[in-house]
């Protein structure tokens, strides 16, 4: 009897431990990470001057968050300045930055370097240091170029507003609706049309523990789309139209001035 009681106690302990383990495993599932963006499509109209992107979702309560918005990586050709003859600054050569995103915007809940280990930052391409390690830079002769040019590259892109790392910008709320987050991103008008990726990473103890992703599209519409298409598909007609309208506008204003008698 005593043995069986012990067995029962052991079994209960084992079942309880298993249940606790299951609960612990299920905890993230209950707090499944989600990421939604509004709007899903940003129309480029005639009066377009950028947009406001609202990104919301749910995550585990204790995780820190990193949100990366980027475009598909591609090779970017640049020219660099150098001093000629020790006196004048000129464009002295070309550089090709291999596989860099055109747009790279990162927002976090805290300092990126504090919440994520270097290995993880490198693996997920988070932060300029991680990008620099992964980016090959070649000069005109195909030779590797100095690392300093990557820093110049990020400075250049930051000035264009299409590269940015902002820390502590994601706000969290813990309430009846669960553990939610929200961030409003000022989408730069300098970012070209295209499909952009949003990657949300939940971070705990210096490691990425969960991920969610979504996309949105920046798209030319209406007259902007029509003119862009015409400039490419009917370049001759576009050129003639540009000349004729300029001529008409010039002579029409000339005629208006004449009628007004302002020319003398």
């Amino acid at each position: 009897m005593k043995l069986s009681l012990l067995t029962v106690v052991k079994r209960w302990t084992a079942v309880s431990a298993a249940l606790c383990g299951l609960l612990a495993l299920n905890a993230p599932a209950a707090q499944a990470i989600t990421c939604e963006v509004t709007p899903r499509e940003i129309p480029i109209t005639l009066s377009y001057h950028g947009a406001k992107l609202t990104i919301t979702g749910q995550t585990a309560p204790d995780d820190d968050l990193i949100l990366k918005i980027s475009s598909k990586p591609h090779d970017t050709a640049m020219k660099h300045y150098g001093k000629v003859g020790g006196l004048v600054w000129m464009k002295t050569g070309g550089l090709e930055f291999k596989g860099v995103p055109g747009v790279y915007l990162v927002n976090t809940t805290k300092d990126l370097n504090l919440i994520l280990s270097e290995t993880e930052r490198d693996q997920h391409q988070l932060g300029y240091e991680a990008m620099a390690k992964a980016t090959k830079i070649e000069d005109d002769k195909g030779q590797p170029a100095e690392r300093k040019w990557f820093d110049e590259f990020t400075r250049f892109k930051e000035k264009e507003m299409i590269y940015q790392i902002e820390q502590g910008t994601i706000t969290r709320q813990h309430g009846e609706k669960g553990n939610t987050f929200e961030i409003v991103v000022n989408w730069p008008y300098q970012a070209p049309p295209g499909i952009y990726n949003i990657d949300l990473l939940a971070v705990n103890n210096g490691k990425v523990v969960d991920k969610a992703a979504t996309t949105f599209e920046v798209k030319r519409v209406g007259i902007i789309a029509a003119l862009s298409k015409m400039a490419v598909d009917q370049a001759a007609l576009y050129g003639i139209m540009s000349v004729l309208i300029a001529l008409a506008a010039g002579t029409a204003v000339g005629a208006i001035f004449k009628k007004g008698g302002g020319s003398h």
Binding site: L46, L227, A231, V232, A235, A236, Y238, G239, I240, M241, S242, V243, I245, A246, A249, G250, V253, G254
Partner: peptide, 26 residues
């Protein structure tokens, strides 16, 4: 030049030109 640039390089921005010429003709 305008025609050649539009035809060969696709670098003429019609709206930008319209805004500029609106000011420049006056």
């Amino acid at each position: 030049v305008t025609f050649l640039q539009a035809y060969s390089n696709r670098t003429v921005d019609f709206f930008l030109a319209l805004l500029l010429l609106f000011g420049s003709v006056f």
